[in-house]
Design a protein around this nucleic acid. Structure first.
Length: 309
DNA sequence: CCCAGTCTAGTCCAGACATT
DNA sequence: AATGTCTGGACTAGACTGGG
């Protein structure tokens, strides 16, 4: 292998197909003597004639039959896998797109991504995964996950690229027939109410908690839960208030629960939602295509969640 | 780093050789 | 005799190598 000129594989295939040194030379764009010399090198390398002269041209020996078949396979593989410009055709690809999202992220992103993907890449499968930060880095690096979409403050190493999509705000939820009325809670009302606090996976809730800490605002916490699911029932049946990302608030209020959405009394920082990918995937056509799709779906301008206030 | 020498593979050309 | 293959010679270009 060390001394074998792999270009001679092309010579074998050309000779095999052409059945003539002259025509094989023509096919490869070289002179007939050069092809003859290449054949001589092949003969020396393999220690046998490979092609013998017959009435119908240069006839391959048994060894040459096997060699040509193997060489053809290798050359095709090189042409397809190594030299071809990588491309991604969404219309025909039966790819799996693995996207890391929190459960809130799923509510915000997944419906639009799925709708768009079904149109653009009808054979694609979407896999939503939820991973702890260390595992997520690893998954993005290995290609196990294509993209992380949402709030991922831990993905800040230089190995990752990120693109801001849009910002998301917090809202307060109370039961629909709560005595407190209006579109915005006052700070007094906010502080007088009992609070439900969701410490779910995903970290966007931290933004709100840290803001309160920084402002030294102490709430009266009545309930701590790791789940969003029970929130509509709890809020609908008690006088408690909960503060959570707008998308969930809107979903609960529209899902027929006894819930109303109010504006918080404080300028809570917004959640910066981004897409993150590993630099390994930066030039990957499939990944590029997905990123372009996501970036096109979620911009400040296209963030059309109707705010109720 | 530059330069000269070497090696390899290509060119063209001419001619020998094998097969039909 | 015609056709195609093979080989050798002269030459060139490019890559590589070793020495100053």
């Amino acid at each position: 292998m060390k001394d074998f000129d792999l270009n001679l594989l092309r010579v074998v295939v050309a000779l095999y197909d052409a059945g003539s040194v002259g025509r094989a030379a023509q096919a490869l764009g070289m002179s007939q003597p050069a092809m003859s010399a290449a054949l001589a090198r092949l003969r020396k390398a393999f220690g046998e004639p490979l092609f013998v002269r017959t009435a119908r041209g240069m006839s391959p020996t048994a060894r040459a039959h096997a060699l040509a078949a193997g060489a053809r396979e290798v050359l095709a593989r090189i042409a397809d896998d190594v030299l071809s410009e990588a491309s991604f055709d969404p219309a025909s690809a039966s790819a799996t797109f693995t996207i890391a999202m929190s459960d809130v992220g799923e509510m915000v992103f997944l419906p639009k991504i799925l709708e768009s993907l079904q149109r653009e890449a009808p054979h694609a499968v979407v896999r939503s995964v939820s991973l702890p930060p260390a595992r997520l880095e690893q998954a993005l690096e290995s290609g196990e996950a294509d993209l992380a979409v949402g709030y991922f403050p831990d993905l800040k190493s230089s190995a990752f690229f990120q693109q801001r999509l849009f910002t998301h705000r917090f809202v307060c939820l109370l039961r629909a027939d709560h005595p407190i009325r209006g579109r915005r809670l006052t700070l007094e009302q906010f502080l007088s109410l009992g609070h439900a606090v969701v410490r779910a996976e995903g970290r966007s809730q931290e933004i709100f908690e840290k803001y309160l800490e920084r402002k030294k605002i102490a709430r009266r916490i009545v309930l701590l839960t790791p789940h969003f699911m029970s929130i509509p029932t709890i809020i609908g049946k008690t006088d408690l208030v909960v503060t959570l990302p707008h998308a969930i608030g809107l979903f609960f209020s529209q899902a027929g629960a006894n819930i109303k959405v109010m504006e918080p009394p404080l300028p809570i920082p917004r959640i910066e939602l981004r897409q993150h990918w590993h630099r390994n995937a930066h030039h990957d056509p499939k990944n590029k295509w997905l990123r372009r799709l996501v970036a096109g779906l979620f911009t400040d301008a296209s963030d059309e969640w109707p705010y109720p206030f």
